[in-house]
């Protein structure tokens, strides 16, 4: 299994390292041609405005289509913003693969960035989480499952094949969330085999 990491800008190296520590091969994705041969895609943290300007319209369009067809995607922080259906202040979504609304920099400026321990549904009660100028979920679609809360706000959620976190598991040594995402890819592959 090869997992792609969107490599236009941001904490690309950290996701690659987390995935490789789990024994997974990775591939940096900068354009559409790089999407061949991957089974899932991680959209890392970074600056969402910069990443969205660097991503070509056709790449975003292709990712939107792939997400709609069940391709597993995992977005952290800026990656979550790119995957959201509604982004506060943006006229239209970027990829729009998960039915949530988000507010950018909802946790405030850098002096308000923090780390904490979260209870994550189905993963554990003690998951370390680093929040950096983090976005929060402001609206949750009916089919979206909230997986973690912080101060009453949803900070991790899943809708079928799309997983998002406001925080950065890739900045910690804890690999459980990445392992969970790899599990989503495996489920998908098994379901596909079942169909065949």
């Amino acid at each position: 299994m090869i997992v792609g990491v969107l490599g236009l800008q941001g904490a690309v190296r950290e996701h690659v390292k987390s995935l490789e520590r789990l024994g997974t091969d990775t591939k940096i994705v900068k354009g559409e041609a790089d999407l061949d041969g991957i089974s899932g895609l991680v959209l890392p943290g970074g600056e969402s405005t910069a990443i969205s300007l660097l991503a070509s319209g056709s790449l975003l369009e292709r990712l939107r289509r792939m997400a709609g067809e069940g391709f597993p995607m995992f977005g952290t922080c800026a990656g979550m913003i790119l995957l959201s259906r509604e982004v506060d202040g943006a006229p239209s979504p970027y990829i729009g693969a998960i039915d949530i609304g988000v507010r950018r920099n909802a946790s405030g400026r850098q002096v308000d960035s923090f780390e904490t321990i979260l209870k994550v549904e189905g993963i554990g009660e003690d998951v370390p989480a680093v929040f950096i100028r983090a976005p929060y979920v402001t609206r949750l679609g009916e089919r979206v499952v909230p997986m973690a809360l912080y101060a009453g706000a949803v900070v991790m959620a899943r809708e079928e094949n799309v997983l998002v976190t406001s925080f950065h598991p890739e900045l910690t040594e804890d690999l459980r969330i990445h392992r969970y995402f790899l599990g989503m890819i495996e489920e998908k592959d098994e379901a596909k085999e079942g169909e065949g």
Partner: peptide, 18 residues
């Protein structure tokens, strides 16, 4: 915890490639 070294260096990590 705010202002930890991980939170401080973490923002720089997010700026990479930019």
């Amino acid at each position: 915890e705010k202002g930890t070294y991980r939170v401080k260096s973490g923002l720089a990590e997010m700026l990479k490639g930019g």
